[in-house]
Design a protein around this nucleic acid. Sequence first.
DNA 1: GCACAGATCCACCGAACGGTGGAGGCGCGA
DNA 2: TCGCGCCTCCACCGTTCGGTGGATCTGTGC
Lengths: 206, 206
Amino acid sequence: MIRLLIVDDHPIVRGGLRDTFADAEDIVVVGEARDGAEGVERAKALAADVVLMDLRMPGMDGVAATATLREQAPGARVLILTTFDSESDVLPAIEAGAIGYLLKDALPEELMRAVRAAARGESVLAPSVTQHLMGQVRKPNAGTLTDREKEVLQLVANGSSNREAAAALFIGEASIKTHLQHIYDKLGARDRASAVAEGYRRRLLT
Amino acid sequence: MIRLLIVDDHPIVRGGLRDTFADAEDIVVVGEARDGAEGVERAKALAADVVLMDLRMPGMDGVAATATLREQAPGARVLILTTFDSESDVLPAIEAGAIGYLLKDALPEELMRAVRAAARGESVLAPSVTQHLMGQVRKPNAGTLTDREKEVLQLVANGSSNREAAAALFIGEASIKTHLQHIYDKLGARDRASAVAEGYRRRLLT
DNA sequence: GCACAGATCCACCGAACGGTGGAGGCGCGA
DNA sequence: TCGCGCCTCCACCGTTCGGTGGATCTGTGC
């Protein structure tokens, strides 16, 4: 029997998860917590096998809670369940010691399979998360923008269109587009908006 | 005779400015400074009438220096001369007590006219800066995003398209577009990328 | 000498975005 | 009760963006 702890600040989400696992004969939800600190405490007190952890919570967030659990309760496997899959969410969580990373659009069956896998010590990742990780491995220089790319990103952050950025740098519009494509690849971004966001998160922009 | 002090961390810029004012018979450059702290000190020691101040400098920046000068040397008029005209640069500078705000693409004649105007206690603003200010005046609640708008901006920063953001918030795509238009208005942004940038600068986004 | 990374440029296409000018509903405070 | 702010939605249009798969030229380092 897998002892599961749910950590999420939204009551609705907790309710939905409780229902989901009510059907499972080999999984029992032994408790819930509303934030990271409570999650750590309960995981220890209840001897949870698997902790289903949200990332964004008030107070201690999911990353900090995961890191703390790795230290204080190494037996508990942390499975991240969150809405976001940007690199800046995924990588810290994996580094902190999460064994899996799922998105909230996962189907109930996927969720249960993931919990069972986590209990066995196996890793389960959402497909888009896998992409990010492979990106990290495949390109050691990913996340390191060249000077030119940083210039382009800064201009885009300041509201320049491709045409305007090209004029500002005295190059062609096509080059701006190429630079942006490289930036998207390196930052794991889908468009200029998310690239700018990643730029700020990684302190590449002012 | 207008006593002018130049405060900028780039020697090239200081040199160019010195040359510019060498031709003016009614303006004398009484000194230069490399950062805000030095600027404050020299403005007092040299009894400058007008201080030409860069915003982004190592150590004490232009905003802090302007505020300090307003206290310690109320006679010195601070004229901002910088490369950037985003709201997050302009507004703090004006609040700190700058009498004018010019961009570095200004022509020498404009610069001299501005210095003379500043010496007379008149305000001179670059056109794009005026836009920002008028936007502030016209809408007292500009810059304060509603909770819903913050949600939308956060989703956009995480790479959501309008369609995806709409799905995430259980509303229509048209509503997302409307929210974004309001966000652009309030933040003085032109597109989702610059809106995300302003969001980070104003610490609205994580 | 050659590989490699970086910067520049090209063409094509569909999809998404931004601009504009509306509209209705709801709740709150004057 | 009457505005006002906020959230929601609609239609139309031109422009821009993102995706793809190339290409050349430079400088650096092995």
